[in-house]
């Protein structure tokens, strides 16, 4: 017979189990974020909490501090993978089998441990800037400051995702463990997460009502190419400054951030259809997605 006491003990036990693989990530000023020991020596956290060119330190559940460096970033998922020498801290129990249902009890964890309880409120999240179905889920719980990059766990204490939204936004998202594992495997296999790019710099642009009606476009904005990098995939495909990009591979592009969301690491090497307006006329351009040249 299950009692509410059993439930309480189970939740506390799940927190205890998962907290053993949780690190404080010092990758930005003031408030540290949270990270999870995903594979031996690899810590996953939220990309937006790790600043560029910054020395990163990790504080483990054992209280010891270690230095780390960024092994890969996936801005489209807001995931960063850090590498560090880690001994004496177990890797998390990752549940990336996808057996999640709306209504499941979940907990979000921060360093300490700190906990927040709630439920899975949506799967297959496609809303907003976030990418493909099956990568994100929405949770109904309170994300407290510093929780970003921390684990979302089930009632068994298994990690089912990484929370990324933080207290800054009003929606609570988590990246599903299976998608995180894919990012981590890029690092394991190639030492990095490839950054997909086509080589255009863009700005948001409003679409005139008459144009939208004539072309049957639902979106109010698109992005305009303000520079096209020479020798880039976009240049090779004939895109030029002034072209207005309305969609890529069927995904609406309303803001520059939408490009980031569409250009997943998996798209490197694949051909995508870029729908543009040139001089007010629609046309489709085939672009072979490249890998962003690494900074010197």
């Amino acid at each position: 017979m299950t009692t509410v006491m059993d439930l309480s003990n189970a939740l506390a036990g799940a927190v205890e189990r998962a907290a053993g693989s949780v690190f404080a990530v010092h990758g930005r000023p003031r408030l540290p974020s949270t990270g999870v020991h995903w594979r031996a020596g690899l810590i996953v956290t939220a990309n937006h909490t790790v600043e560029l060119d910054r020395e990163i330190e990790l504080t483990g559940p054992d209280g010891r501090t270690r230095s780390a460096h960024v092994a890969g970033r996936d801005p489209s998922l807001d995931i960063a993978v850090l590498r560090a020498e880690i001994d004496g801290v177990p890797v998390a129990d990752i549940a990336d089998d996808g057996d999640l249902r709306i209504g499941h009890l979940v907990l979000a964890l921060g360093v300490g441990p700190r906990a927040s309880a709630g439920i899975i409120s949506a799967l297959d999240v496609r809303a907003g800037r976030r990418p493909a179905a099956g990568e994100m889920l929405a949770v109904d719980l309170t994300m407290y400051p510093g929780f970003s990059g921390g684990p979302l766990i089930d009632v068994r204490g298994r990690v089912i995702g990484i929370t990324t939204s933080g207290a800054r936004q009003h929606l609570q998202w988590a990246v599903r463990a299976s998608s995180v594992t894919r990012s981590v495997e890029h690092v394991v296999r190639g030492g990095r997460i490839p950054r997909a790019y086509i080589g255009v710099g863009t700005q948001s642009v409003e679409l005139p009502e008459a144009l939208r009606q004539r072309l049957g476009l639902a979106q109010a904005t698109a992005v305009i190419a303000v520079n096209v990098r020479p020798d880039s995939p976009a240049a090779a495909a004939g895109l030029t400054i002034g072209d207005v990009i309305v969609s890529i591979a069927g995904h609406t592009i309303a803001e520059p951030e939408d490009l980031v969301a569409v250009l997943r690491p998996e798209r490197v090497g694949s051909v995508v259809t870029v729908s543009i307006l040139r001089g007010g006329d629609p046309r489709d351009v085939q672009v072979t997605v490249g890998e962003r040249p690494r900074r010197a």
Binding site: A12, V15, E16, A117
Partner: peptide, 9 residues
């Protein structure tokens, strides 16, 4: 209260 655990209801 010293026996309380994080995550407990």
């Amino acid at each position: 209260s010293d026996a309380l655990r994080v995550g407990a209801v």
